[in-house]
Amino acid sequence: MPPSSWFLTLIWVWCLPLMLVEAEEQQEEVCSAKCGAVTISNPFWFTDLETGRSCGSPGSPDFQLTCLNNSYPLLPSSVRVTLGFAILNISYGERSLHVIDLGKLQLLHDPPKPKIFNSCLPVWNTSTKLGRPFKISPINLELILYNCTEKAAARARREKELVRAKTMRCVNTSNTFVRAGVPYDPTGSYSGYALEDCAPIVLPVLPSGETNASHYERLIQSGFLLKWEPPPPEQSPLTELVPSHGD
């Protein structure tokens, strides 16, 4: 073998371990893991509770998820002592999440029953529980739950568009009513659907043909879509130290 070939071979043997280490480091940086059937990737991240290893570099706390029993990822609520959102699917290209509001799922008599449903926690409007990067997709319709006084309930029973929530738990089923098919209101006021002496709780649902209030259990269990804005790019320390031209 010519001397030049020996030299190239030695360089290759010497460089190969370094190349493998570099490739391994790059692979770890692009960490992609699954929780149940959902792939977790940037900008989302979570820590494996068994190994203590973080999937992806810990980024914005707004995008930190929890993997519940390796069954589905959970997006936490921004309101303390309230249930968050079970993620059924993530579309990274469209920056959308298909989620179920667990706070509303606890109202149903026969949901999947993990321990989190053992007690009745406060129920909030879904939009109130979202972190800063997340918004309700305007493609959704809205389901409104009304918790009425006795007098208001008597009036509500005469409303044809309202259905009494006979199968809900954690509420007074005699005075709780459901309205479905309400168009999405970006202001979140839904003032045109207010009922006197009835406290409303607003929940987005996926449009599915004729959205009937009597199907409220199926609508809640089917979930809805969220959109997210990507986190701002992180600045390196060197970038932060460079003075601007105006200084």
Score class of each variant (00 low, 15 high):
2 P>N: 09
3 P>R: 08
4 S>F: 01
5 S>P: 00
6 W>G: 06
6 W>K: 12
7 F>I: 10
9 T>S: 13
9 T>F: 14
13 V>S: 09
14 W>D: 03
15 C>L: 14
15 C>W: 10
18 L>D: 10
20 L>M: 14
20 L>W: 11
22 E>R: 09
25 E>H: 05
26 Q>W: 11
26 Q>A: 13
28 E>P: 06
31 C>R: 00
32 S>A: 11
33 A>F: 01
34 K>D: 05
34 K>L: 05
37 A>F: 05
39 T>W: 10
42 N>F: 13
42 N>P: 11
43 P>W: 07
46 F>N: 03
46 F>E: 05
47 T>I: 13
55 C>L: 09
57 S>I: 06
57 S>P: 04
61 P>V: 03
64 Q>G: 13
65 L>M: 08
65 L>K: 09
71 S>T: 12
72 Y>S: 15
76 P>C: 08
78 S>K: 01
78 S>M: 05
78 S>H: 04
79 V>N: 03
81 V>S: 14
83 L>R: 01
86 A>V: 00
87 I>P: 00
88 L>G: 15
88 L>R: 03
92 Y>V: 15
92 Y>G: 14
92 Y>F: 15
93 G>Y: 10
95 R>C: 08
102 L>P: 05
102 L>H: 03
104 K>P: 00
104 K>G: 12
106 Q>S: 11
106 Q>V: 06
106 Q>G: 01
107 L>P: 14
108 L>P: 04
109 H>R: 14
110 D>S: 15
111 P>G: 04
114 P>E: 07
116 I>P: 01
118 N>Q: 14
119 S>K: 12
120 C>Y: 11
126 T>F: 04
127 S>N: 08
129 K>R: 11
134 F>H: 07
134 F>C: 13
134 F>S: 02
136 I>Y: 03
136 I>S: 05
139 I>K: 09
140 N>T: 02
141 L>C: 06
147 N>W: 01
149 T>A: 11
149 T>F: 10
150 E>L: 13
153 A>Y: 00
154 A>N: 10
155 R>S: 15
159 E>V: 02
161 E>P: 11
162 L>Y: 02
169 R>Y: 01
172 N>A: 09
176 T>G: 00
177 F>Y: 11
178 V>M: 04
178 V>T: 03
181 G>F: 04
182 V>Q: 02
184 Y>D: 08
187 T>V: 11
188 G>F: 11
193 Y>G: 05
193 Y>D: 11
195 L>N: 08
195 L>A: 02
195 L>H: 15
198 C>D: 00
200 P>L: 02
203 L>V: 08
204 P>I: 00
205 V>T: 01
206 L>S: 13
208 S>W: 07
211 T>L: 04
213 A>Q: 11
218 R>E: 15
219 L>T: 02
220 I>V: 12
222 S>W: 04
224 F>Y: 10
225 L>V: 11
226 L>E: 07
229 E>A: 13
230 P>E: 10
230 P>H: 07
231 P>R: 00
233 P>W: 00
233 P>Y: 00
236 S>A: 12
237 P>L: 08
238 L>G: 00
240 E>R: 12
244 S>Y: 05
246 G>Y: 06
